[in-house]
């Protein structure tokens, strides 16, 4: 989550354009900048809950939760090249898994996270199978339909015994364990922080691994990837599964932090927000997820402050203007800035 090391995309830059000689030196200086930025972010992240009020801590926690979900979406869209406008559905599945386990079976909240992840992995993998036949807009359309339908699916009467229908489920907030001197908000913040960090490291290693290269090869040229021996259908479904796993864990965390879920917490606005966060943060740039999470958490509030009645319109306007100004998101902007910077230091 925090940008404590170089991203894969940056790390690969010298390999791709290995013609010019000074490039590796530039890449190291970039790496240095990124590492410094990561350490600063990490320090801010650890200090923040001691310096801010409980509501801000809650907001920061939600921001990181969104970032985890966006990270999952980034693996699917940015790394594997498949669109999804319906990730709110996986978020909802994760949230409901956690809530039902805690509410019906009285299982501890920490155990719900891996279970939510596994269930979402299976659901995502299964949804990925029909999605294999869909590309581009068609996949966007099918997942958009999934996003619109999600709240209705959770209202269905056959599941009402589990989901409590429209009423929703109330969850109690867990206290800090081992007598740690933290209030519940701070504890949940650090829990989310740790899981987010773990999720980021896993995602980075996944992208840097053989599997990650296969996923990127499929994104760049599925036919060539297939002829190189990559099992395209398997990896595409796997990408869907892993992506859903991330989003599901985020959903479970979200349910615990918000302490209440109902079908209408997961309207298509949520799915749409995740996509917006992904694009704003930068498609394919993993640390961008944090910025995306910040955008979808705080910009609507800023919009509300600018104009109460027209907050939606202001938010929409900011989105559109962002797309005009930086079509590749913050990640693309940063990359361009770093390239310019290293070029200048080389000329000196």
């Amino acid at each position: 989550m925090s940008a404590n090391t170089t991203t894969t995309a940056d790390g690969q830059a010298p390999a791709k354009q290995g013609v010019s000689l000074p490039q590796p030196a530039a890449a190291t200086s970039n790496a240095k900048i990124m590492r410094t930025a990561g350490v600063i972010l990490l320090a801010i992240g650890i200090a923040a809950p001691f310096l801010s009020g409980n509501f801000l801590i809650f907001q920061l926690t939600m921001m990181m939760i969104y970032a985890i979900a966006i990270l999952g979406l980034n693996i699917l869209t940015g790394i594997n090249g498949q669109f999804s406008l319906g990730h709110g559905a996986f978020y909802a599945v994760g949230a409901y898994t956690a809530a039902i386990m805690m509410d019906q079976f009285g299982i501890g909240y920490l155990w719900t996270l891996p279970v939510a992840g596994i269930i979402c992995f299976v659901v995502g993998f299964l949804f990925g199978l029909p999605a294999l036949r869909l590309e581009g807009v068609y996949l966007a359309l099918a997942t958009f339909a999934l996003a619109v339908v999600t709240p209705q699916l959770f209202k269905l009467s056959p599941f009402e015994h589990w989901t409590s229908g429209v009423m929703g489920i109330v969850i109690s907030k867990p206290d800090a364990p081992f007598g740690l001197p933290l209030n519940p908000d701070q504890w949940l913040y650090f829990l989310t922080f740790a899981i987010g960090l773990l999720a980021y490291v896993c995602a980075r290693n996944l992208v840097g691994s053989r599997t990650g290269r296969a996923l990127m090869a499929i994104r760049d040229n599925p036919i060539a990837a297939g002829s190189m021996g990559v099992n395209t259908p398997l990896f595409k479904s796997l990408a869907f599964g892993v992506s859903a796993l991330y989003t599901g864990v985020a959903g479970a965390l979200g349910a615990i932090v918000v302490q209440y879920i109902s079908p209408d917490s997961f309207t298509f606005t949520l799915s749409v927000a995740l996509v917006v966060g992904l694009v704003v943060g930068g498609v394919g740039w993993l640390p961008g997820a944090l910025f995306g999470g910040a955008f979808i958490m705080f910009v609507p509030n800023i919009a509300e402050e600018l104009s109460k009645g027209l907050s939606g319109a202001v938010y929409g306007l900011i989105m559109i203007l962002m797309m005009y100004a930086i079509p590749t998101g913050l990640g693309g902007l940063l990359k361009a800035a770093l390239t310019a910077l290293s070029k200048r230091s080389m000329n000196r």
Partner: peptide, 17 residues
């Protein structure tokens, strides 16, 4: 494509609001 989708989402939000 994703930038287009975000712009459509923005339009959606603006008109709705």
């Amino acid at each position: 494509v994703l930038s287009h989708i975000v712009v459509f989402i923005g339009l959606f939000a603006i008109i709705n609001s």
